[in-house]
Design a protein around this nucleic acid. Structure first.
Lengths: 140, 140, 140, 140
DNA sequence: GTGGTCTAGACCACT
DNA sequence: GTGGTCTAGACCACC
């Protein structure tokens, strides 16, 4: 996996790295079990303090997205949805509202948003069946 | 307009207030020319330091969404899209990707996301014509 | 003389009015002895608090630019250069530096600034002889 | 870079600092990528509250002329002209008019203004080619 | 009444 | 070390 970071941005570097891992996973570019570059290697590559890389990795591990196996490296963890359906719904709606608020302020029309969304949604690897199925999709 | 803030959240209070103003505008709940609560009044109401409110307001003014008139109060500014179409497109795609990344990690299916999005999109006041119209939506 | 003010601007209204009087004088659009609209009349016209108009006028009077004759109205005062050449030089250089700093930040070239300046300078009514002549312009 | 501020002046301290940074940049005395003194250091040096320095820096960052990297310091940002030619022209004319109005009121002649301007203009680092070149300056 | 500026001093986040 | 956020409380400018 290829990382990059922008030291001039106001979003902290460790956050940029976390976001990149999460987005790459969501796009299916990296799979569970895959190994990420070591802290030191990535620190050299990005010319960044190793502590910063370590912080990004440890936060992701705390979130259950990565597994660190001492002496072996850092690996993508298998998916695990531990949240209740209610909490997941809330967060989805929140994420959508943030996105739509931005879209309105950028001056786009409903159609333009829908078009762009359709284009982008194909590039993500969505689950084929929800772990806690919603009532909308009754089991056959 | 009704505000609320969570002192315990890791997102700064002034940021929470900014987001609420922006979302309320995007939903059409507050209109250009409308007056917001005064700094002191809102500070008393939320039990927050007036400086914090002032910071939220002044940041929004610099973003061009508010006008503050000393001695008069703070008002919603008329809409003004000064960004190029290219920049606006970039930001829209970025916002959508953040949203979709979150949706995948929450374990939702494509259909669930599409359904929720359709529900939410109706609650926002989108522009009816883009300031820099895209070739995608020819006039009938 | 026609006044206008922008309540949304962050420069105070009384300052906007002062600047308009000063610029109109510098352009020769209003002459010494000419009468300005009364406080009440201008306040009605601009839909502004009379105190605000009064403040603009009294500040200009303090600067020696206006004369208020009670019961008669407000008049443009005859020119009077009471400052030393040294102070006037300092202020001219300061004003020019502010202007040039802005020009550089706007990304203009020297030629573009010179061209625009030549166009604008013709519209102002400069003195034909300096009250405290500089050594550059020896008396014949 | 050397700063100074006048606590007695009616222009706010943070504004004075902003103006000094902008002028130093326009004169080429500080270059993109260069680091400014830290908030705390400058606050000690000028005997001013750190919050005041921070305000100046953060306003300049919002204007796009500085980058602040938490934990690293504050740096001059690479130049970026995002404004349309029309807006830039308007602002240039406005800046020139303010300057000329002042010059007339100080009692200077056209020649004196032209002479002083020629002297000062050499000390600024103007762009050599406009980002949106005007038709006035064809390439030789 | 309104918002704007500044101080003093605290705590946190980032590198 | 760096900057960012928040509080408490003061004074000023504008309308």
């Amino acid at each position: 996996m290829k990382f990059q970071c922008d030291t001039a941005a106001r979003v902290p570097i460790y956050r940029q790295l976390m976001d990149q891992v999460r987005e790459a996973m969501a796009r299916g570019r990296i799979q569970p079990g895959e190994r990420l570059p070591s802290v030191r290697q990535l620190a050299r590559e990005l010319v960044v303090n190793p502590n910063t890389i370590a912080k990004a990795y440890s936060e992701l591990e705390r979130a259950g997205v990565l597994n660190t196996r001492p002496g072996m490296g850092v690996f993508i963890a298998p998916p695990q949805a531990s949240l209740t359906l209610e909490v997941r719904r809330e967060r989805l709606i929140k994420a959508i509202n943030v996105c739509l608020t931005e879209a309105v302020h950028l001056g786009f029309t409903t159609e333009e948003v829908a078009t762009t969304l359709t284009q982008q949604i194909e590039q993500f690897q969505f689950a084929t069946a929800s772990p806690n199925p919603s009532p909308k999709t009754p089991a056959p």
